[in-house]
Simulated assay, not measured.
Amino acid sequence: MKRNLLILITAAALLISGCATGPTVTRTASDEVIDLSGRWNDTDSRLTAEAMVSSMLSGGWLERFSTDEGRPPVVIVGSVRNKSSEHIDAETFIKDIERELINSGRVTFVAAGAARDELRDEREDQQSNATQSTAAALAAETGADYMMQGVITSQTDAIQGKRATLYKVDMELIGLENNQKVWIDTKEIKKLVEQKKNSW
């Protein structure tokens, strides 16, 4: 009797485990637009960065600077504050902007924030631990002419299974020597999400 019960339990366990299904995963192209929740996503970040950098590089400030100084301007990306109603990884957006700036070939780009601090720490360490001929020189950084800064905000309106969210990204370019704002722009993304039998 106990033996039959053990066989029955084992068979049931195998049957249940065989019927259990896991999630289905489909690989897609990294630039394919997939919007599941209606919240800010990688596509919004990429498209906004592309639009902002394109706008910035078409501004009159770039030609004026290149003509006056005889070289491309040096740009650094500062903070992009997330003041929206949801979690947005601003670092991902900053990296998208950096990629667009560097790949444009129209400005010289220098590291900022934690990356710059790490490089400075390494240079300092080399002064004591690397040979004199290979140690990177101190106080030889390329100074930035302009800093790009911005803020992400959002407004949400919802009723009976419908939610509309407006994301607004404001960016500006400021001269480091004189604090003059030489470029400013806004990009808006509006999303409408409908979900039956649900409310927010």
Rank of each mutant, 00 (worst) to 15 (best):
S54Q: 13
K95W: 08
A20P: 11
S37Q: 08
D125N: 13
I16M: 09
R116N: 12
K162D: 15
R3D: 01
V74K: 01
R81F: 05
T165V: 11
F93P: 02
A49W: 02
K196T: 09
Q132L: 14
Q132I: 11
A112P: 01
Q160S: 12
I9M: 08
E100C: 03
A114F: 13
V80Q: 00
I184F: 12
D44Q: 04
K168V: 15
G22K: 10
I184V: 14
T92Y: 10
E91P: 04
T142A: 02
S128Y: 10
G78C: 03
Q126K: 07
T142G: 00
L15D: 03
R123D: 05
P72D: 00
T156H: 03
T28C: 07
P73M: 00
Q195T: 05
D125Q: 14
F65E: 00
R99W: 09
D121E: 11
L57P: 04
T156C: 02
E32P: 12
I94R: 10
S37P: 03
D125F: 15
A140N: 14
G150M: 03
V74E: 00
D31K: 05
T153E: 08
A114W: 11
S58P: 01
E86C: 04
Q132W: 15
T131N: 11
K191P: 06
W61G: 00
L47V: 09
S128N: 14
E69A: 12
G38K: 04
L101V: 05
E124R: 14
M147R: 13
K162R: 15
S154E: 05
T26K: 07
F109V: 02
R3T: 02
N103I: 04
V110S: 02
T43K: 09
R81S: 14
V107I: 12
E98S: 09
E98A: 06
A114Y: 12
D121N: 15
K191M: 05
F93I: 02
I184H: 13
A11C: 07
T134A: 10
L57M: 07
V80Y: 01
R123V: 07
E188C: 13
K2C: 03
E177T: 07
I76D: 03
I189C: 08
K190T: 15
L5D: 11
K162T: 15
E91F: 06
T26S: 07
S45L: 02
L47D: 12
T48W: 07
D35F: 06
G161F: 06
R3G: 00
W183G: 00
I9K: 01
G59Q: 06
D35T: 13
S104H: 07
I7T: 02
R81C: 06
S154M: 09
M1Y: 10
F65W: 04
S66L: 01
A130S: 10
R120Y: 13
R39M: 06
A144M: 03
Q126A: 06
W40S: 02
Q195K: 15
G175V: 01
E100M: 06
I16D: 03
S66A: 07
L138A: 04
A136W: 09
T165S: 05
S85N: 13
E91Y: 11
R106I: 00
P23N: 08
E124T: 13
T24C: 04
K190I: 14
E86W: 10
